[in-house]
């Protein structure tokens, strides 16, 4: 199954139309979204913005499960990125996720809840102070944000909250981390259930060096599954908390087996 990995870059390249750089000023929003100007003003401020197809935003055109729409954002073609911001323009809560890549590639995989068909946009801030923006439209049946999480319906969610499964894969020059964290990720839009979501996750290596940092918001899907490409390490420590201060702590390391097991 090596061919999968080999084919992947090809497939991904094909999914990006061109490398053309649109100057945002005077250039129409490629997604033709009514919310774009608002989003730009509230989320990106006064900084200059360009539409840039070098950022890859992978997501299905049609969301089969509006509670779990897979997204991958990869801005590594831009070189150094200091911040990566993902937002869903027509969701009742726009901000989905923020990343400070630090030592990691400006790449993050996750799933989100969408309320209706919406542009999903990624903005990457480069050291020159420029926001590079790309995105795509996901069509959806809706209801993702105003439906109680499945966890909430299960009276036992509290006992598994914060449980982590995860694994490291070494690649060329980087280590891919994938993990799933049990958490209801309630949006607060369901009557009687307050917003309850993972706030922040720090990714550290064994020496305590911070490799990357994520900020999660309400639209991230229940029991988040996250993917990052970190520098090569044999173990990664994940430290974080939700907005109630419940800690999330786990060490994910490479050795699959150990004598004590």
């Amino acid at each position: 199954m090596k061919r999968l990995i080999h084919h992947l870059p090809l497939v991904l390249t094909l999914s990006c139309t061109s490398n053309a750089l649109y100057a945002e000023q005077g250039q129409a929003d490629p997604l033709d979204s009514t919310m774009w100007q608002d989003m730009r003003r509230t989320l990106l401020g006064d900084a200059p913005v360009v539409f840039d197809d070098r950022i890859r935003v992978l997501a299905p055109g049609d969301a089969e499960d509006s509670m779990n729409v897979p997204v991958l954002v990869d801005a590594s073609a831009l070189g150094e990125v200091t911040r990566l911001l993902v937002f869903a323009e027509l969701n009742p809560i726009h901000k989905v996720l923020e990343m400070e890549p630090l030592k990691a590639k400006p790449l993050v995989g996750f799933r989100i809840k969408v309320q209706q068909a919406t542009p999903i946009r990624a903005a990457a801030l480069t050291p020159d102070g420029m926001w590079h923006v790309a995105g795509r439209i996901v069509d959806a049946a809706g209801g993702g944000c105003t439906v109680p999480s499945l966890g909430s319906g299960n009276s036992d969610w509290a006992s598994r909250m914060g449980e982590v499964i995860g694994r490291l894969w070494s690649g060329k020059g980087s280590t891919r981390l994938r993990l799933r964290i049990m958490h209801p990720m309630d949006t607060g839009l369901v009557p009687g259930i307050p917003a309850f979501h993972i706030d922040q996750l720090d990714f550290l290596d064994a020496s305590g060096e911070r490799l990357s940092r994520l900020f999660l918001y309400e639209p991230v899907a229940e029991n988040p599954v996250l993917t990052l490409d970190l520098p090569q390490r044999d173990s990664v420590t994940v430290l974080g908390a939700d907005n109630n201060g419940n800690p999330i702590e786990a060490i994910i390391s490479k050795e699959i087996r150990e004598a004590e097991l």
């Binding site: 706030d199 720090d202 550290l204 305590g208 430290l239 908390a241 800690p247 702590e249």
Partner: peptide, 18 residues
């Protein structure tokens, strides 16, 4: 123990202060 150690190394308490 190894997790504790990692936490200590990271210089962070169990509750991350934001």
């Amino acid at each position: 123990k190894s997790l504790r150690k990692a936490l200590a190394v990271a210089g962070l308490s169990a509750a991350v202060a934001f």
